[in-house]
Design a binder for these strands. Structure first.
Length: 424
RNA sequence: GGAGGCGUGGCCGAGUGGUUUAAGGCACCUGUCUUGAAAACAGACGUGCGGCAACGUACCGUGAGUUCGAAUCUCACCGCCUCCGCCA
């Protein structure tokens, strides 16, 4: 959500933002409703003013005068009721439109239609050359009984899976490693709800637009990311001070219908309906510079983790068409997937300015004594099982085993190689 | 599941139908004093909307209602607390 004053004064900027983001939103509709809101609001206020005046007069009036005032008030009351109904209709439209206003992308964001127009800004690690024909993660994992897709779909339907043996341990090792790693950087570790109220999704900007990608009974929803409940955690709060940003490292199950992606990644663990994610969530002062600094910081945090894991990656800046409604700027980190011979997204780092905080009513008192809406950011730390497919494919050996990245060995009961213990 | 109580500004808290422009306190902000800070004192001090302004208007968990007039009365919903029951 943006400030209506800002929208009125910068409607061209908002219209351009919608165009750049390929979002169907007509700012003129909102401007028209806003004009109605102000005009009808003034009429209502005028009537109320009269009513208040009459109320005051009535107190000291003689019985006859009282009668007379009450008679004139009857007409005024029905007129007021009429206008109030009009106002509430207008407000409803106004709120609906306000929830659709796109945030303004940063100047540094390249223009484009889709992820194909994203621009590489960094690259790390050499793409591994195998002296044998590398397998994909499905083959490696099935060979050692680390995954069961057949029973997975039997149980959970399309994209269902069971992780078994060393893969089950590896997945938990990654979570533990990530939670430890970020805790040491001063992030507060949290386990958060995945089952959330609708308001939490509206507040973070996943609704009303993203309904088709969410599991729900229309009342409670399964969140697609831990960001949702972590942000809602502070809703309607006034934070003590934000001289030091609030930083959370959050683990949660994530649920996505992946509507519109039915044809993509139909096999394997790259795209599933139910996965787990360690996520960085940050709240900071209402300062663009602070947001930018922290955005770079949380991006680097994850890049450095990929380097520790020895996974070749590149980082792209997402083009305008690939930005969400509320995002100002976004970087994706993409890992090299040998079986697909391309980079695949593992992390997504974005900042929102006060877009989410406005919707969630998260404020703080700034050093000048004024109430302000906070800024918010988030980035993936480790999303599994997608991340472990990358580990498995990049670290595979010719005999079908997988070498465990050094940093994960302590979390794998000291094991250095996996894939031998499974039994069919 | 049963019974009772409660929901007021950043926080605490008064207020049970009509100067409430929401008392009072704390915090925040600005001054004075100080090398600096603290303390003390003084001042300012909720938020939204309209208006150049004076000012007007709304907001007391949410929504509806009663009334000339609602923070205050009624109903519904949401949330919290206490006790009992149930489970562990």
């Amino acid at each position: 959500m943006l400030d209506i004053k800002f929208i009125k004064e910068n409607k061209d900027l908002v219209a351009l933002a919608a165009k750049k983001k390929r979002i169907n939103f007509n700012v003129e509709d909102l401007i028209a409703v806003e004009a109605d809101r102000v005009a009808i609001g003034q009429q209502v206020e005028e009537l109320r003013s009269k009513q208040n005046k009459a109320s005051e007069d009535i107190m000291g009036a003689t019985p006859e005068l009282k009668e007379q005032i009450i008679r004139t008030m009857t007409d005024l009351k029905s007129e007021l009721k009429n206008k109030e109904e009009k106002l509430s209709e207008t407000m409803k439209k106004w709120r609906e439109l306000m929830l659709q206003v796109p945030n303004i992308p940063d100047m540094s964001v390249p223009e484009g239609n889709s992820d194909e127009d994203n621009v590489e800004i960094r690259k790390w690690g050499d793409v591994k050359e195998f002296d044998f024909t590398p397998k994909d993660h499905i083959e490696i994992m099935e060979l050692a009984n680390m995954v069961d897709f057949e029973r997975g779909t039997k149980t959970a339907g399309f994209r269902g899976y069971f992780l078994k043996n060393d893969a089950a341990l590896l997945e938990m090792a990654v979570w533990q490693y990530a939670m430890d790693r970020w805790s040491k950087k001063g992030f507060t570790p949290m386990l958060v709800p995945s089952l959330v109220r609708k308001e939490a999704l509206v507040g973070t900007g996943y609704l009303p637009q993203g309904e088709e990608d969410l599991y729900s009974d229309g009342n409670e929803y399964f969140a697609g990311t831990g960001e949702v409940s972590t942000m809602y955690y502070h809703s309607d709060e006034v934070l003590d001070n934000l001289d030091n940003p609030l930083k959370y490292i959050v683990w949660s199950p994530c649920f996505r219908k992946e509507a519109g992606s039915h044809g993509k990644d139909v096999k394997g663990l790259v795209r599933v309906h139910e996965f787990y994610k360690v996520e960085q969530v940050v709240l900071c002062r209402a300062s663009h510079e602070e947001s930018v600094r922290l955005h770079e910081e949380i991006t680097r945090n994850s890049e450095e983790m990929m380097e520790e894991l020895g996974l070749p990656y590149h980082t792209v800046i997402n083009c305008t068409g690939d930005l969400g409604q509320g995002q100002v700027k976004k970087y994706d980190i993409e890992v090299w997937m040998p079986s697909q011979n391309k980079y695949r997204e593992t992390h997504s780092a974005s900042y929102f300015h006060d877009y989410q905080a406005r919707r969630l009513n998260i404020r703080y008192r700034d050093n000048d004594g004024k109430m302000k809406f906070a800024h918010s950011l988030n980035n993936t730390a480790a999303a599994t099982p997608r991340l472990i497919t990358a580990i498995i494919e990049n670290y595979q050996n010719s005999d079908g085993t997988v070498t465990i990245p050094e940093v994960l060995v302590p979390y794998m009961q000291g094991k250095t190689v996996m894939g031998k213990n499974g039994q069919k």
